[in-house]
Design a protein around this nucleic acid. Structure first.
Length: 293
DNA sequence: AATGAGCGA
């Protein structure tokens, strides 16, 4: 660095990036200027320039390039073919060739818990008689009843199939998605649970339920709940799947639980899948012992 | 080898 500065004091004014220049760079003024010819009618451009090579010898460099004519982009055969397709969709009403790209007007409906602008939970006080102030948040997550009892005290909590008499409880999956925010419980339907129909009466619940609970261990670390569901649903309606996740790492802990609506299905699943090779590992499938609360 | 999270007065 010091040597450079003493030899060529003006280099001190250069920024570090400019110092990266080839040493000969400073002597460029000794070279003839660059000459560019063309491009001619064929798009051929010739450039003649001079530089110093690494040994300090003057070298003449001529470059010939073909310049693509403006607006004459190369189009692949396939693309040309596509241009001859008959117009379809919204483009059938367009003049041929007027536009190659159409803006889609297709409506895509997104499911969301509550559409913006709609009101939240109906007020607790409506029609429920006297409600303790401060009890507004007391909504049973099992039956949806407000201001009456906590989930843990729900009279229906042990019922596999909640009675149809539940207040404000949509009885079908369709009703659940058609009335976002209106029901007493979350209207969100996980993707794997959407599209009701077949599943009537076997509603998957996030709620813990120890009925017909099957413990699955020796799961590979990338087995997720949908995978478990796929595997076990062939035995009958599954009310819940759970894969234990390490809260710190977010990784599977290698075990999970599957709850069946019917005990016989659980039993068949255990008999069939215990010792079953899945994702390079041998599954262990057994009855789960209920966890103490 | 291994037994789940959330959701509160």
């Amino acid at each position: 660095m010091a040597a450079v500065e003493s030899a060529r004091p003006q280099a001190a004014k250069l920024r570090w990036g400019e110092l990266e220049e080839d040493d000969a760079g400073d002597l460029d003024f000794l070279l003839p200027p660059r000459v560019v010819e063309g491009p001619d009618e064929n798009g051929i451009k010739k450039t003649t320039e001079y530089r110093f090579d690494e040994d300090g010898n003057k070298v003449k460099v001529t470059t010939t390039t073909r310049v693509r004519k403006l607006g004459k982009a190369r189009v692949s055969k396939k693309a040309k073919e596509r241009r001859n397709w008959a117009k379809f969709g919204d483009a059938v009403h367009e003049d041929v060739g007027s536009r190659l790209t159409m803006v889609s007007t297709e409506e895509i409906l997104l499911e969301r818990p509550r559409a913006p602008g709609t009101k939240e939970e109906p007020s607790v006080s409506e029609g429920l008689g006297p409600v303790q102030p401060g009890a507004v948040l007391m909504v049973c997550r099992t039956c949806g009843k407000k201001g009456d009892h906590w989930t843990s005290k729900c009279p229906y909590k042990d019922l596999a199939q909640p009675p149809e008499t539940f207040v404000e409880r949509p009885s079908t999956a369709d009703a659940a998605s058609a009335a976002p925010g209106g029901a007493g419980r979350s209207a969100y339907v996980p993707p794997s649970m959407r599209g009701g129909g077949e599943r009537t009466g076997t509603e998957m619940s996030r709620r813990r339920n120890d009925e017909n609970s099957v413990r699955v261990t020796n799961l590979s670390e990338d087995t997720r709940e949908p995978d478990l569901l796929e595997l076990f649903r062939t035995f009958g309606p599954v009310s819940r799947v759970y894969v234990a996740i390490d809260q710190k790492t977010g990784m599977s802990r290698g075990f999970g639980f599957v709850n069946f609506v019917h005990r016989e299905d659980a039993e068949r699943a255990i008999n069939k899948l215990n010792g079953y090779g899945y994702d390079n590992l041998i599954l262990r499938v057994e009855w789960a012992t209920p966890r103490p609360n």
